[in-house]
Nucleic acid binder design. Structure first.
Lengths: 346, 346
DNA sequence: CTGTTAGCGCATTCAG
DNA sequence: CTGAATGCGCTAACAG
């Protein structure tokens, strides 16, 4: 049964059950030569290599990455991400994926929520695959999980807030505090004084926590008080944004601007304004966060915080690959810039 | 160096370098007993099992899935997906991911474009990891890739058009032809006669091809002629949708409705209408495809084709897991329903 | 430039 | 209920 053709009545179906050994046998070389032809072409004569490649092509052989990985040559990057829908995480995943593939790595995607328990479970799952490197969203809360990650020996990038806690290994991100502070100041500079804040569920998400803190800090700096109850948490949907708008404007008749922690929410709120015949920003100003594709095309064009999440994903992987490539000089903290995009909605 | 504590000055850092063997050694049992405690609890006495689990907890041991997979116990589902941004694929990936995790599987995500070359490369990458099952978007074009997939022995689901070509193994999807046909008919029933069609790049994407064909078939059925040049292809962005609107309305002054192959495009077009002061659907009716989250909240609410992509993802994985669980009765073709959601924009 | 030996960590098979 | 031997496919290390 070692010839691999055991249960294949057809006879010449390419089968992944065949390995380097079979290739080697067919052309009369040692298995290691086949291996080298692929991963270390310099150490094999051009002629031998050609024969090997031909046999590989003919037999439809695809090297087994699992076996490679067990020998320490793993080329898999693992990541834990929150739900992809509506969140801007999709762009980040895209960035990671692109950079991974350009570097010859594959990406394992594990779903994780922002609860300690789910986080730990996700990280365990990830570690089970012995990835060469890992990327996590937000800081890891669970001490157990942090210890596990550290003990793995693999490089880790946390894509998160660049300020505050000690990273497990490396961080890539922005100062969420600063972005929110800057946007709040921006709104104030445009004359708005009663500024509400709407976010998606904050619990366990230090990025959102930082944004809220930045918003508070700006209000304090501006000497604006009485903003109690001008904050709402809603699910990350367009409808959530609309509901937040309704809630805030009915509770606070003279609120004049709302800062949403996500463009998705802001877009939903703008639709609700249209529906009510409210001018944006005449009746109320709306600002978002993320600069999603639609933001620039929205009517009115959305004032928002631009954070290049695609690039964030790419950078995270790049850090990992640099480290895996033996570069010791890789910076521990990579802070990406952001931009306040002033458009029509505020 | 077999005690695994070699280069760890701290001493008790949990290390993934430790395996079942070490756990076994510590509590004086055979490695296999550790293995069984995890995967086959019934075959181990409760007391032994408790000791094993305690040691595992203490040492921070996470079983190596690579090694398991090499023994044929792989718990990884691989998938090839087009870019996640703006495409509705994110929802599908979410569905796959959720179902995978509930079933105890992990998901490997490989990026693939709709060109034959990229497709083949992506599939090779995927196969290298010897996934227990695979999910592909769209039908596989390349014969080489199809042969490779078939030869792998693993179950394959193509999420695609349910009509037409022979699947490699199983298909989950909808009849894109029917959805587009139905929407075009729906628009006609509402009185529109000069109906344009806008899609994202069609080449190599049989889903889009089928939608266009469905649109054509409906027009023919309706006896509507002279729709030459009433089709445009644009990138899948809100701006693309706006540009398509401008292009079509300037070329065809009396066009009265546009059917977009994606909500993202439709939403962009609606914004452009607002900007121009055009009533929707008064000046022009707009219909989308996908029923994305924003569609129901949009102003005006978007008439669209509802396709539950999240569910499609879940179903695809469910098929795979059923087959992996030994169920031979798994249907080859799973056709999900769709719904024409009649709202305000058309 | 090419080959031999050995082992990564787990789980199947067969024996106690 | 528990264990010993063995091999999945690949590649590092060390010959030749």
């Amino acid at each position: 049964m070692t010839d691999g053709s055991g249960d294949d009545p057809g006879g010449n179906t390419p089968s992944q059950r065949l390995g380097v050994r079979e290739i080697a046998r067919r052309i009369g070389v040692a298995p290691i030569t086949v291996s080298r032809s692929l991963s270390n072409p310099g150490r094999v004569s051009a002629e031998t290599r050609a024969r090997v490649l031909e046999a590989i092509e003919q037999i439809g052989f695809v090297p087994n990455q699992l076996a490679s990985s067990m020998r320490g040559n793993g080329r898999m990057i693992g990541t834990v991400v929150p739900p992809l829908i509506n969140s801007g995480i999709a762009e980040q995943v895209q960035g990671m994926s692109d950079e991974c593939h350009e570097g010859g790595y594959s990406m394992l995607l594990v779903q994780g929520e922002f609860t300690r328990e789910a986080e730990e479970k996700a990280i365990r799952t990830l570690l089970g695959w012995r990835p060469a490197g890992m990327i996590l969203q937000s800081f890891v809360q669970s001490e157990t999980a942090r210890a596990l990650l550290q003990g793995s020996g693999a490089p880790v990038v946390e894509i998160s807030e660049v300020k505050g806690r000690d990273p497990i290994d490396m961080v890539v991100g922005i100062s969420n505090f600063e972005t929110a502070y800057a946007m709040t100041m921006h709104l104030a500079a445009k004359g708005y004084r009663r500024i509400g804040f709407v976010s998606t569920p904050i619990h366990g998400n230090d990025r959102l926590q930082q944004r809220r803190t930045g918003y508070h800090a700006a209000l304090t700096k501006l000497g604006i008080k009485n903003h109690d109850g001008m904050e709402v948490e809603v699910p990350i949907t367009a409808q959530g944004g609309a509901e937040a708008l309704v809630a805030l404007t009915s509770r606070h008749k003279h609120i004049d601007a709302i800062f949403f922690s996500s463009d998705t929410l802001a877009v939903g709120a703008v639709q609700e304004c249209h529906r009510r015949g409210w001018a944006v920003p005449g009746r109320i100003a709306i600002a978002g966060y993320g600069d999603m594709d639609l933001a620039a095309q929205l009517y009115p064009r959305l004032t928002t915080v631009r954070v290049n999440r695609y690039d964030m994903g790419r950078r995270a992987v790049r850090q990992l690959l640099a480290r895996l490539g033996g570069d010791v000089e890789v910076p521990t903290v990579t802070s990406l810039g952001f931009e306040i995009i002033d458009r029509e909605s505020a």
